[in-house]
Simulated assay, not measured.
Amino acid sequence: MEKIQITTEYIKLDQLLKWANVVGSGSDAKHVITEEMVKVNGEIETRRGKKIRVGDIVEFEGKKIEVIA
């Protein structure tokens, strides 16, 4: 599992996918999120502005990303 550190209260889901280099652009992030290809804490998430906080786990194409402080 990859760990991504944030220094703010939260990061938006689309920004996290770009930051973790899982997608190449914001439009790519929007596409995979709206196509129900991304899970947050085991549940499909379709809101690209979803606030991801420390302790959340994001899954995409078999890759898991844990957000740490």
Rank of each mutant, 00 (worst) to 15 (best):
T46D: 12
M37D: 09
E59G: 09
A69F: 14
V23G: 00
R48I: 05
E45I: 05
E45R: 12
I68F: 08
R47C: 08
V58H: 07
T46N: 13
Q15Y: 07
I65A: 03
T8F: 04
I52N: 02
T34S: 15
D14E: 11
K30E: 02
L13G: 08
T8S: 13
H31N: 13
G26D: 02
I44S: 10
I65Q: 04
I4K: 07
R47V: 08
T8K: 13
E43H: 14
K50Y: 10
I11V: 11
M37H: 11
W19A: 15
E35Y: 12
I11E: 07
V22L: 15
V58L: 08
S25R: 00
L17Y: 00
L13F: 09
R48Q: 11
R53Q: 15
K50C: 07
V32L: 01
F60R: 04
M37N: 11
E2C: 11
R47P: 05
A20S: 11
I65D: 06
K64A: 10
M1D: 11
V67S: 08
E36N: 14
K51A: 10
E59C: 10
L16P: 02
M1R: 09
D14P: 01
T7L: 14
K12C: 11
L16T: 02
G42V: 05
D28N: 10
N21I: 04
